[in-house]
Amino acid sequence: MTYKLILNGKTLKGETTTEAVDAATAEKVFKQYANDNGVDGEWTYDDATKTFTVTE
C-alpha cells in the first residue's frame, strides 16, 4: 500500500510517499525521514486517506 506524509515543519514543508505493508511500518519510515530532516512535531494519521501529517 502507498502511504503519504505531509510535512508542516518550521523550515521544511512538503510531501513524500512510501510503499509499506501496514501503517505501523510506514510510520517508522516517515518518523525516520522527518528526524533526518530536522522536523519534530505533533503527528496525526488519517486511515481513510492513508496520510500521516507532522506539524511543528
Rank of each mutant, 00 (worst) to 15 (best):
E42M: 12
V39A: 04
V54Y: 03
A26R: 00
D47F: 09
A26F: 00
T16C: 12
G9K: 04
F30G: 00
A24E: 11
V54F: 05
T16K: 11
K4V: 11
K31F: 06
E56W: 12
A48P: 07
D46E: 07
L12D: 05
L12G: 08
A48K: 12
E19P: 05
K4G: 04
G9E: 03
Q32P: 02
D36P: 01
T18A: 09
G38I: 04
K28D: 06
Q32R: 11
L7H: 04
D40N: 13
F52L: 01
V29S: 06
A24T: 09
V54C: 09
E42I: 14
V39K: 02
F30Q: 00
A48V: 13
T49Y: 05
N35G: 09
Y3T: 01
E27V: 05
K10H: 12
T11F: 14
F52H: 02
K4M: 08
T25Q: 13
T16R: 11
E15R: 08
F52Y: 06
V29D: 04
T51N: 02
M1E: 13
A34P: 00
T2H: 08
Y33Q: 03
K31V: 06
T16I: 15
A26L: 00
L5D: 01
K4F: 13
T44G: 06
G38R: 07
N37S: 10
K50C: 05
Y33L: 05
T53I: 09
A26Y: 00
A48I: 12
T17I: 10
N35D: 08
N37H: 15
T16D: 03
F30W: 02
G14C: 13
D22E: 04
K4L: 07
G9A: 07
T18S: 05
E19Y: 15
A48N: 10
T44H: 13
T2A: 06
W43D: 00
V39G: 03
K31L: 07
K10P: 10
T16F: 15
A24S: 12
T11W: 13
W43V: 02
T17W: 12
G41H: 02
A34G: 03
E27H: 10
N8T: 07
Y3W: 05
E56I: 09
K28V: 11
V21F: 13
T55A: 05
Y3A: 01
E56L: 07
K50N: 09
N35F: 15
M1V: 14
D36N: 10
F30R: 00
V54R: 01
I6K: 05
L5N: 00
V29Q: 08
T17G: 04
K31W: 08
D36K: 07
L12S: 08
K31S: 04
E42F: 12
E56D: 08
E42P: 04
Y33V: 05
T2I: 15
V54I: 10
E56R: 04
D47M: 09
E15A: 09
T51Q: 04
E56A: 07
V54W: 03
D46G: 02
A23K: 15
